[in-house]
Design a protein around this nucleic acid. Sequence first.
DNA 1: CATTGATGGTTACATTTACAACTACTAGCC
DNA 2: GGCTAGTAGTTGTAAATGTAACCATCAATG
Lengths: 169, 169
Amino acid sequence: MGKVIALFLRTYLPYRLNLLAELTSDGTREIYRKRHGLTRPEWRVLVNLAEAPSLTASALCARVPAHKTKVSRALVALERRGWVRRTVDQQDRRVSHAALTAQGQRAFAAIRPEMEAATEALLAPLTPQERARLDEGLAVLERLFGVAGQGAAEEGGAAQGGDGAAPLE
Amino acid sequence: MGKVIALFLRTYLPYRLNLLAELTSDGTREIYRKRHGLTRPEWRVLVNLAEAPSLTASALCARVPAHKTKVSRALVALERRGWVRRTVDQQDRRVSHAALTAQGQRAFAAIRPEMEAATEALLAPLTPQERARLDEGLAVLERLFGVAGQGAAEEGGAAQGGDGAAPLE
DNA sequence: CATTGATGGTTACATTTACAACTACTAGCC
DNA sequence: GGCTAGTAGTTGTAAATGTAACCATCAATG
């Protein structure tokens, strides 16, 4: 059977990306899920809070990125667990600023190396050249979507409202 | 940039891939979901069946990739819709082979160009060089995971030895 | 200040998904 | 044959998710 097979999958970008994302996450998902009892949105919110002193729910929605209900529920769960503390903004009492507690920071500090080790184990067979090619390829898309400098497309990017939350730097 | 902030996210591969996969899929998801009433597993099964004459549920699980319950329910839905027909294997009656009906092939032929057009619109700003870099970067990972030659790991599912599966060109 | 419209965030409900049994069947062994 | 173990695929149930409605607050206008 010569392959008359149309090579749709091979070249269809969303499919390729989703497949690779899932394969890459297969090992690490267990770490935050089974070992630490976090859902994926919770883990993502945790990571983002670990990289910024304080973020509003809206800012988290833009950074994670996720719909506000997912962020809301993740924040509730993390708060209940004592990893996050929220304080109401005094200028605009609809807004609340979420930040990691010391306990939350310790938790992230514990989980992060596990995640990195699992990922490194997965990528171990790659040569430095291959890693560079991979990085460059992803950077192309990140520039396209404007997420390259997560720090750059920051709160300003989400800043249609330009709320007063402290900028990251 | 005086960031003390560890750039975990920037360099953490699963996170980068998941983010890009989601951003890339944002536009196309609507096409198969709203316009054609397919769930993502259903769409994935449809695509895979379109590229192979006949696949068992197990083979689909490996190719999609997805857990067998997702594939099972996707097949039920596609069968009910008349896009897939399953026939029981005579050598092993636990096994059934799924294939697209003519109607299913027409459906895929209708959806596919919509998906490709939406993706192309998204990638329009990229230069040929950037596209090549993107492709090379993803190919690095695909080789690592052995998914490069999707066409090779056929119904037998044999080629999972992880060797260099036949590069599909 | 009352009214209107917009926004940050939460809650409610329907759909999807994950995980764990479960059924049907095959295969090996005595 | 009858027993056990293993595999292909399905179904039941609890958790997770998407969508839409909702509450509280703010800002603008009369």
